[in-house]
Amino acid sequence: MALMPKRVKFRKTQRGKCAGKAMRGNAVSFGDYGLQTLESGWISARQIEAGRVAVTHFLGREGKLWVRIFPHKSVTKKPLETRMGKGKGEPEMYVAVVKEGTVLYELAGVPEDVAKETLARCAHKMPLRMRFVKRRHF
């Protein structure tokens, strides 16, 4: 099941901006290694899921993965060959709004080289530039 909110206050949202930098959620908190975004933007529920599947597929039963983002925002689209007007389109997908520095996935229980390879595969599924990060000690 693709990630999406269970309950929403409004079905459709305005597009908004992704201005600024991640001032929280920008450090590895649960695992030992993480995948951090170097750009701000939207990551769709499908892309989040594709990244998770890429990790699970590569690691099998090894390690533990945390997905730190959730697609809260609905994105609408008008049907093809429709004239403009007549109101806003219907929700097409859900996206997570991420800011530069956000840690998207975290991994633990695997050696560093395996974590690097795994998260590199995951990064290929992402629409933004990513980098591998390690947990800070203080």
Binding site: M1, A2, F10, R11, P91, M93
Partner: peptide
């Protein structure tokens, strides 16, 4: 498959 979330 895409379902719709419940609207509060």
């Amino acid at each position: 498959e895409l379902a719709e979330p419940e609207v509060i």
